[in-house]
């Protein structure tokens, strides 16, 4: 093929490119418009769905979880705003209410557990504190997690405990709690060496930190070695009513 040369050819090429660009923009705009329309329809539908099933959402923990998952998969957080149009759904209120109650339970038990509470205990206490009607009783752990995550003051990173005191807990501390839970609520340096293959120094540092945070109690009367107990994981403490 013979190559076209010359000024005319270059200009022509330039013109073609511009036309392509225009066409591209046109298509993009069209798509965007369509998307916006679709999203609008979707929002209306979702809103309709939510208000239609509002009662169901409030009552049924399983349904609530599924709704949350559906929203999450499309990048919508019905809890995120009390102002936006999602507020009409009243889903957020449910979790805010729950969050406040979580704080109350945490404060009430702080004295004995040092500010760390297992989800199971938290759930039991909440159910006792809430109304007797079925709607109030049906609270899943998933609900608790969502509500607690809304409270930024809570430490994160645990999927089975809620921490209500300020201060960081690292992965090491989380691992210690997991081990202690398996072991009736206490742990030792030797135990951590055996189970997690940690050197003494690593265990000691993490354990000292937890004692300083008031999360762990030391027991010096074990003949073999010093033991570290966690009231929040100790059955008798968890089950005690006061």
């Amino acid at each position: 093929m013979r190559r076209r040369t010359g000024l005319g050819a270059i200009q022509k090429q330039k013109l073609e490119q511009e036309k392509y660009k225009d066409k591209g923009n046109e298509i993009q705009e069209g798509q965007f418009e369509q998307m916006t329309k679709q999203l609008e329809i979707f929002k209306v539908n979702l809103e309709e769905f939510a208000s239609k099933h509002k009662n169901e959402i409030r009552k049924n923990p399983e349904f609530r979880r599924q709704f949350q998952e559906m929203c999450a998969s499309i990048g919508v957080d019905p809890l995120s705003s009390g102002k936006g149009f999602w507020s009409v759904l009243g889903i957020g209120d449910f979790y805010y209410e729950l969050a406040v109650q979580i704080v109350e339970v945490c404060l009430a038990t702080n004295d004995k557990n040092g500010g760390l509470i297992g989800l199971d205990e938290l759930r039991t206490r909440l159910i006792n504190a809430r109304g007797q009607s079925k709607q109030h009783q049906e609270i899943s752990k998933d609900d608790l997690m969502r509500a607690a995550q809304k409270l930024k003051i809570f430490g994160s990173g645990f999927n089975y405990m809620v921490q209500s005191v300020p201060g960081e807990l690292s992965m090491d501390h989380s691992a210690i709690l997991q081990q202690a839970e398996k072991n009736q609520g206490f742990i030792s340096v030797c135990y951590l060496r055996r189970e997690l293959n940690w050197e003494t120094e690593r265990s000691q540092k993490a354990l000292d930190h937890m004692v300083n945070q008031g999360l762990s109690w030391v027991d010096l009367q074990n003949p073999q070695e010093k033991l570290y107990y966690f009231p929040s994981l100790f059955t008798a403490c968890v089950n005690s009513s006061n």
Partner: peptide, 23 residues
């Protein structure tokens, strides 16, 4: 007996002042 009575570290004076005061 309160739950603390069966909690072994209850019988060791606690090093953390806050915990000790609760104890």
């Amino acid at each position: 007996w309160p739950w603390q009575y069966s909690f072994p570290p209850f019988f060791t004076l606690q090093p953390n002042p806050e915990t000790r005061s609760k104890q």
